[in-house]
Amino acid sequence: MAKITASVYTSHVPAIGAALDLGKSSDPYWQPLFKGYEPSKQWMKDNRPDVVFLVYNDHATAFSLELIPTFAIGCAAEFKPADEGWGPRPVPVVQGHPELASHIAHSVIQDEFDLTIVNKMDVDHGLTVPMSLMFGQPEAWPVKVIPFAVNVVQYPVPSGKRCFALGQAIRRAVESFDEDLNVQIWGTGGMSHQLQGARAGLINREWDNAWLDQMIADPQACSQVPHIDYVREAGSEGIELVMWLIARGAMADVAGGPKPTVKHRFYHVPASNTAVGHLILENN
């Protein structure tokens, strides 16, 4: 039986990818940030899963305004790093897990989530930056990945409540897959940031950390936070945080199991325009 063993949460700031790719990770500006991920890379070596179910959002890369899926699940055998305007990031091609991905799609659609199935898609920094942060710079990624893209660009975006319920459905789907697989689920994006208008640069350290506290301790309550609070308190792009609730909803305690253990927690300001948050929760 496949099993979700842990969830990982992290911002996916494009400038972090650029810093890594250009060899700037020990610059004074970036050094404190990458230091915060050192324990995570070690933890990942000790707890490497077979498959990562990676929740992220596309940033007008694979999806233009022609077609905007609320939830899209990648069922292909591989996904290429996208050219976001400066050429593709020099990172390995992402290997998918078509069997598990279509199993989850089948199960979750029957569970009344109206997914879009995608068999051809390039993946942008939303997916590749978390991979780099957790695995460093290998020749090939050491895990298979199921990309799961959430619309947080055009309103209305899915609510925290919907995302949290989806996470629960994903957990049921994974656990009904016959093959023995160690699966992690990652939620990415956030934390507070605003990239547009006169309010660009907004950072709300207090709100971010209070939100994190609640997401860890009482995710059900956290899932009730309305959209407007994210925008007002964490900036217009802070809304990406709803994606973390998908990963959180897939943890065992939400289905009546034991509370997860916090293996690592890290918060840093700034990475370019953004507050960076990071968390590792292990199921018990």
């Binding site: 309010r199 660009a200 907004l202 350290r205």
Partner: peptide, 21 residues
């Protein structure tokens, strides 16, 4: 460029913890 600040001012604001809510 959207905030009416120079890039230097903006970068300094971010290093100092960003724009307050």
């Amino acid at each position: 460029s959207m905030t009416g600040m120079t890039q230097e001012q903006y970068a300094a604001m971010m290093l100092a913890g960003g724009r307050s809510a």
